[in-house]
Design a protein around this nucleic acid. Sequence first.
DNA 1: CTGAAAGCGCTTACAG
DNA 2: CTGAAAGCGCTTACAG
Lengths: 304, 304
Amino acid sequence: MGVETKKKIADSIEELQYQPNILARSLKNKSTKTIGVIVANILHEFSTQIIRAIEDSCQELDFHIIVCNTDEDPEKEEKYIKMLYAKQIDGIIIFPTGGNLKLYDRLQKSNFPIVFMDRIISEVKFPTVLLDNEKASEIAVEEFLANNYRKLGIITTSVIKNITPRIERINGFKKAIERNNLALDQRYIKSVEKGSIQSEFEKMLNLTSPPQAILAGNDFVLIELLKYIRKNCISIPNDVALIGIDDVSFANLYNPPITTIRQPTFEMGKLAAEILLDKINDSEKTINNKIYRLKPELRKRSSC
Amino acid sequence: MGVETKKKIADSIEELQYQPNILARSLKNKSTKTIGVIVANILHEFSTQIIRAIEDSCQELDFHIIVCNTDEDPEKEEKYIKMLYAKQIDGIIIFPTGGNLKLYDRLQKSNFPIVFMDRIISEVKFPTVLLDNEKASEIAVEEFLANNYRKLGIITTSVIKNITPRIERINGFKKAIERNNLALDQRYIKSVEKGSIQSEFEKMLNLTSPPQAILAGNDFVLIELLKYIRKNCISIPNDVALIGIDDVSFANLYNPPITTIRQPTFEMGKLAAEILLDKINDSEKTINNKIYRLKPELRKRSSC
DNA sequence: CTGAAAGCGCTTACAG
DNA sequence: CTGAAAGCGCTTACAG
């Protein structure tokens, strides 16, 4: 084409406001430049931060993300996965409910790009990005010990659905207790439904020999404990010391500021996006189904 | 088709794991059953809650949402709008930066389904869903008065970009002050950059006649004020009373619990989705470019 | 009622 | 190098 022809075309594009139909291009190219992100609930700060990091990574490569909430319901998860797949999206990052083993398996066999976040599903092999949860508990236990608390407890949300972080945090806690030659008191270790957190906490505090320090298994548990603490005028850390896993936004303005263990959420989202986009760009690549455990980080404040 | 034939087909679908290619269907049908949601920053709880409500509404109709962050950058906004449009999505819900008037105008002329959230762009007509911001300030002022505070102040983030809620909250505050025959003291009214909130607050408190009560213009301002308050051992509400617009998650566990004004975020998201999906389902429909102002709601607690 | 054909708007391999 | 044709995988109007 001559220079003039090129200019004419460019002019016409401008004049008619021509926009290519990317849908048609996608149909031909077999790439929609769109990925799905399936979380349990976007309202959890943890998920939101990871989504933001994923979106940032995608944005640089002109990928878009479709966000879905499962509310931990395997049926919703199944519906989303199937519909996203039918929409020909290029890959999925998912916080798996664990309730669709057959479907995960089929996806794996068809070599569809998937990265798991936060939870390990042992029956199936996908690259998985999560916190080094045992390490998180270990850091907390050691911080408690460094501040001379010896009777330590942990409260997490229910463990019946086998959700990785809860299980690993409990295990990490127990291991750290034993490694430090402390007594393991089962009454100090509770995994309970959300509605029972405050009452279990109360029971612990009312033991003849109550724990001196509690590790809150996640942000939700921490909030429940703080509600109980405020209602009952309990003093932190004098009556009970506290560390929370998840660096909640209010940790710094609470009185006293709360010591937390931060998950590197942005790094986690970025890493998951990188792994997924890598696989998308080179589908023949031998998949590296590693489990990536990222390091938790202690944020020392004054609740312990 | 006979019953047997139908069964055979169903069996084959099951056996071969046939999934229709929705992309091809979309190309033909001119509907992708996907909408874009362009927010300033998904990390803001306000945006997250609205996104969740939109997603819930969409999910019922098998629509998906693509989430984008502009960071208030008109260039990012432009890029997203154009790319989503080229991807043939069916509509967009957007927290507009206000920096792309020509593009908004073109979209309007092409009758593309759009709903604006949170911000009014007066140069262009789209259905717009936002808080009744003046009412929010009025409720706060009246709550302060009911608790016998007479010297009232307000702090918001910067107003230079003409972002609707900030402007309207200031205006509503002034009107309420005048309606109640109180003196309007400009030194008690500040709209400042994020980094200057604490120092402006300090200046106010150091006036010879400081305000007795402060309305925090949004969650971010509230957090900054609380940080300053904690650092300086100021007592709420004795030294200064506080109301925050945005019902932050920690309001209830702070000591004292903080009185807030809740935005009906879920209702806002749901309404925006309904308006958009209505328009998408019936593109000939005369568009109702109304401004929908939803009612703020006082959450009485103990900071005032 | 059934089945073949056209068309959605691109990209790409290929003939001229 | 240029331009027409085929094809992506659907849906739908239409001929038989």
